[in-house]
Simulated assay, not measured.
Amino acid sequence: MKTIEDLKNIKKATFQRVNQGTNRKTTRIVVGMATCGLAAGAEPVYDAIVDEVNKLGLTNVVVVKTGCIGVCRLEPIVEIIKPGEEKVTYVNMSPYKARRVIASHVLVGAVMKDYTIHVVQGKILNDYKIESD
């Protein structure tokens, strides 16, 4: 059985690894895995992301699951938060799109605007229109 002190240490270590705030050193990839995301295919998207991150040997990337991101009609949703940059939200993801996003955005820094719905400094990067692969 864990003590309260053990749980506090786990919380602190996890917080430092995942929520680094303004001192973030790793790229954080968040996949919406609420009921709506799972029904839309978020699990294969998550698996493709983890596989691609491992295949590319990206050690400075943390992939996490979260609950509802809030735009159910655009699920599966993936958010990428890179150090020193604004969050980019990718929508209507598929395993194929997820692998492309990792290779383009995470690996070389090129946002795939066709897959996004995101506002930067008051401007919409892309007025996303749902399309198939």
Score class of each variant (00 low, 15 high):
G67C: 01
N9S: 13
K113I: 13
L38P: 03
Q20T: 11
I49E: 02
L74R: 11
I4G: 08
N23I: 15
P83D: 00
K11L: 15
V50W: 04
P95D: 14
A98P: 06
A13R: 13
V111M: 03
V101I: 12
F15R: 09
G32I: 01
V53N: 04
V64K: 05
G109I: 06
H105G: 09
D127S: 09
L107P: 01
K87D: 05
M93P: 06
M1W: 03
Y46R: 12
P44W: 00
R99H: 05
I29F: 02
N23V: 02
E86T: 12
M93T: 02
E85V: 13
N19L: 08
T14C: 07
V63P: 03
T116E: 06
T26W: 11
K2G: 06
Y115M: 13
I4N: 07
I81N: 05
L56I: 13
E75M: 02
V88H: 09
K65A: 00
A42S: 14
T66C: 11
K55C: 02
F15V: 02
I102T: 12
T14N: 12
I130F: 10
I29W: 09
M93A: 07
V30S: 09
G84W: 06
A40T: 08
V120I: 15
R99Y: 10
V64T: 09
V18D: 10
D47K: 15
E86L: 08
D114Q: 09
M33E: 03
V106W: 05
T26I: 13
N9P: 07
E52I: 04
V111E: 04
Y115V: 01
A40R: 04
L7I: 10
G32E: 00
I80D: 05
K55L: 02
G67K: 03
M93C: 10
I10D: 06
V78Q: 01
V50F: 01
N92K: 09
S104P: 02
H118T: 15
V120S: 13
V64L: 02
C36A: 03
I49W: 03
P95F: 01
I80P: 13
E75C: 00
L58K: 03
V71G: 02
M112F: 01
K87I: 03
L107M: 06
V119Y: 12
T116L: 09
Q16R: 08
N54R: 14
Y128H: 14
Y115C: 00
D6Y: 07
T3L: 14
I130T: 14
V111H: 10
V50C: 05
L7D: 11
N9C: 07
K55V: 05
G67V: 00
K123V: 13
C68K: 13
V63T: 14
G21C: 07
V120W: 07
L58N: 13
A40F: 04
A34T: 05
G122E: 15
E79Y: 08
A42L: 08
E52G: 12
K2Q: 10
E43M: 12
I81H: 14
N92D: 15
T116R: 09
Y115I: 04
G70D: 05
V120T: 05
G57N: 12
I4R: 11
R99E: 10
N19S: 08
V53F: 09
S94A: 05
D127E: 08
